[in-house]
Design a binder for these strands. Structure first.
Lengths: 193, 193, 193, 193
DNA sequence: GATGAATGAGGCTTCATTCAT
DNA sequence: CATGAATGAAGCCTCATTCAT
């Protein structure tokens, strides 16, 4: 699965031949089919495993127990840092999750659902913060969650998978710096102090 | 090209057969090759045409001639509205641009460059605003541009191509409402008044 | 289709590779799929064509307009001779029809139905003869038809496709001789005059 | 072997995987190869066992010690009944014997030889009856045997393995009734009293 | 310009058989 | 005797591209 996820991310699902995977793995073609029902099956297993790990990270990051705005911002920054760290450690999975709007129905859906669950977590987070009076009420919580999720997806994709202009230091940013910048934008926007 | 871009967007590049395109077009298979050198060639032509149109919209939107913060915000909102309108009218091209990180090297690069140019436009916009003292100085302009671009890409993708939760009214939002929400988040973040 | 039917009959459906057929035909592998949807499809087309021809022969052979027993026997002999001649001229199709209780569901059914139609024709023939008083009434017309059909199938299979003992002259028998022998057994049995 | 013969008969030799057989048997794949050299080997063993049993039945049935025509008919009916009973009790083997003109050379030949031996037994029977003056002389004893064998094969196949028209009572016939009908046709034909 | 038949390389999957334990 | 993981050859089918007309 490690070999497969890397190849899927680097060269694409369709461009990855079973023969590539088994060659890398040093086993025979038939051996693949002892462990996986099909090419699609291994992709779905990869997604499922990644999904669980990622959602666990997000779930663990929820420590919104009320408190000051500053504490909320710090909490958010911690969560983003966790997510970014996860992305760094599972870069091939994240590349697929963020960038592969693949051509295979089932696979696309599996990724899609993972992202929906992720966005949902953020939405619940925002909701709670609104209830606690830490964030202003807004007509559509969903749009805020969508904007936040867009932010995270986009910034991670650019951070890890480029491309970035040559004079940008984004790729070299440490996890905590990136989280600081992102969370700042998240709460204060371009105009924020 | 209209037929092809729709099929590419709906079913994917690899899942679109030349025979599908020509069937829809009502011509023979060989005819395709009179007009396009290859399957890749038509994709690249599609991208090139879309790229020009899109960048023209963005270029036209630049009317930042200094002024108050409010004017800047209004200008930005106008630009976003223009972009959203373009996306609405060229939904298949936008779907490919935003969601197809395809498997074909050349095609992926063509999309990628278009997005880089787009992001670059935003970066220059921000730079100018900083120079004019309308936005606070920041260590990395690129990151701000990346965050802004992420915002726009993510929100357009969700707005037009879903999926969105059933209780979200995002898909029904009018161009101007969406632009208002996005620009508000852009400048003030979640906490913004 | 001629090439395919021969290979199917000689070596079996499963043992016949598409590459065998196209090699014999002197065309490329892909060309096969321009004319036939699949390997199964060509088999079904072969069966359909053979079925129509065969049933046409049987239908044409019905000239039972009443008359003496001798005329009935002669009519039956003519019909059998027609069938045997057809079998001789379509030996590969007949070999499949009579001997291939193949492994492919759809193909087996297609052959099966053809044989059912054939047996049905014989049953109607017998029925008419009984109505005309030319044959004794019998509890089960179906069994008589089954016995008659068995006779024809078995004798044709042995005549054309062997194996026969070395001292049997069955394979060398002319169509009319074979028909005479078969019809004699049909009407009079082993004890018949 | 019981499991294998059933699967071979129901789904075909080629459609039966070794893994199917061992799964049904509740043993491991490798175990199969401790008992049988190959897939073909088990098929040949199945055929050999069935062949011996079947020929024993036929041999036992020979009690033609001269006598009246009526006694001859009764003897024949007893033999057919024995064969039909055997077929009923070994339906999967019989299905293969009668209907599987399989694709595997060796297997096809093994079945073929069994049927030749069977037909040979009938031929010797007829010969003796002719010598004893109980049956009329005929130019070709082989053809008579072939016709008789065809009769038996065809009627057993239809009786046990269908298909039969819905208004036929053939499938419900008891062994003795079937034997009576068949032997009647055998000796007297369609016209026989 | 247009047609559509022909090409052929390439990939996923199956499954009988082997073999180390 | 038994296990079950591993092997790898083989075949059906797809589809971008070509080309004679």
């Amino acid at each position: 699965m490690d070999i497969a996820v890397e190849r899927f991310a680097r060269y694409g699902y369709q461009n990855t031949k079973i023969s590539d995977i088994v060659n890398d793995a040093g086993v025979a073609q038939g051996t693949f089919y002892w462990y996986f029902k099909s090419k699609e099956a291994i992709a779905l297993e990869i997604i499922e495993a990644g999904r669980e790990d990622l959602l666990a990270v997000i779930k663990r990051g929820y420590r919104t127990g009320g408190g000051s705005v500053q504490e909320m911002v710090q909490g958010s920054q911690r969560l983003l840092a966790d997510i970014f760290r996860f992305a760094q450690e599972h870069r091939y999975f994240m590349q697929l999750l963020l960038m592969d709007n693949g051509e295979e129905e089932a696979i696309r859906n599996a990724f899609r659902e993972t992202r929906i669950e992720m966005e949902d977590s953020f939405r619940r987070n925002i909701e709670r913060a609104v209830e606690l009076g830490m964030l202003p009420k807004s007509s559509d919580i969903h749009i805020r969650a969508a904007l936040l999720m867009s932010l995270i997806e986009g910034i991670v994709a650019r951070w890890l998978f480029g491309p970035t202009p040559s004079d940008s230091n984004l790729p070299e940013l440490a996890v905590d710096e990136l989280a600081a910048q992102a969370v700042h934008f998240e709460f204060f926007g371009l105009l924020g102090i």
